[in-house]
Design a protein around this nucleic acid. Sequence first.
DNA 1: TGCCACTAGTAGACAAGTCATCTATGAGAC
DNA 2: GTCTCATAGATGACTTGTCTACTAGTGGCA
Lengths: 172, 172
Amino acid sequence: MVLSRIILGLLAIAPMTGYDLKRHFDSTVGHFWAADKAQIYRTLARLVADGFAEVEKVAGAGAPDRQEHRVTAAGRAALAEWLSSEPERHVQRDPFLARVFFGADLGADGLRALFASRREEARSQLADFERVRAETAAADRGARLRLATLDNGIAHLRTELAWLEAAEGEFA
Amino acid sequence: MVLSRIILGLLAIAPMTGYDLKRHFDSTVGHFWAADKAQIYRTLARLVADGFAEVEKVAGAGAPDRQEHRVTAAGRAALAEWLSSEPERHVQRDPFLARVFFGADLGADGLRALFASRREEARSQLADFERVRAETAAADRGARLRLATLDNGIAHLRTELAWLEAAEGEFA
DNA sequence: TGCCACTAGTAGACAAGTCATCTATGAGAC
DNA sequence: GTCTCATAGATGACTTGTCTACTAGTGGCA
């Protein structure tokens, strides 16, 4: 559901192919909702089947044909309905914490390695967020809201890094 | 994979029934890895099929029979192997942020409601974390590590609440 | 006596997500 | 000239996760 509505929302900003969507996810929305290629294509197919999106085959000049998807009126209505519906509960699902939970079985070395890998991950994510944030213009209200979601990510990553340092000091 | 290893890890602390596991998840591990009842039972069945756990039927004195699951040696080995393997990547999947991303379509009122519901959710989660944290004794290294995962949750919730206030001030 | 909540487990359908592999084409590298 | 990379799209098999609805016993309460 959420993925299909995100895709609908992105298509409402601009018509796109599955391939475009994948790139878009990886560079922006993917920070809080990743999407697999296979799933994007399947979801697009279902959106079309449900009448929420239309396809337009654009003959590629040499390159493979593009299938541009655009939202229909019904799609916009579905998006609006979802946006105003009760938000889904956010379920944390963090494999790193799952490992820390059993960290005692891991020994000091294992924990150190675990913390180190997470720290690297968080650092590179933080750099990525900050780069994207710097590149994004606060043109209108929509863009400022999207910037806010990036700020949220940045705040959480900083928190995470601070916690990691404290935890490493204590346990590794 | 992660769920099955978490279950293995919990069973390694103490033998349990599926029902016990469900309660355990909801009150502790569930903060960073929720589990559905149906899934717990299925995963337990697979662990048994794979030889990683054993079942012992305990005739309930009046009450329904319990199926106590305990880890086998192979299970402990599988757990150790998982713990020392490359950690899974942490994929954020936050429906709230997905909604904020399209917040411009939502209007100020919709955004206000969205932020308010998240704030309530975060507040009650924070209270829950702090309660559990206060109730948990820092008996040994394992317990201190589990406390650390709670501290991580608390830190993130505080960050979230601060961000929410800032974002609400700006947009709603 | 009937109803409800709790404990304990099971079944089935379905939605969502992952992983690997496949077909094409064009551009540029070697 | 072949090879790799990026573009564009798709499928099959599989695992995970969610939702609903059961069976069945115990104890409390009104």
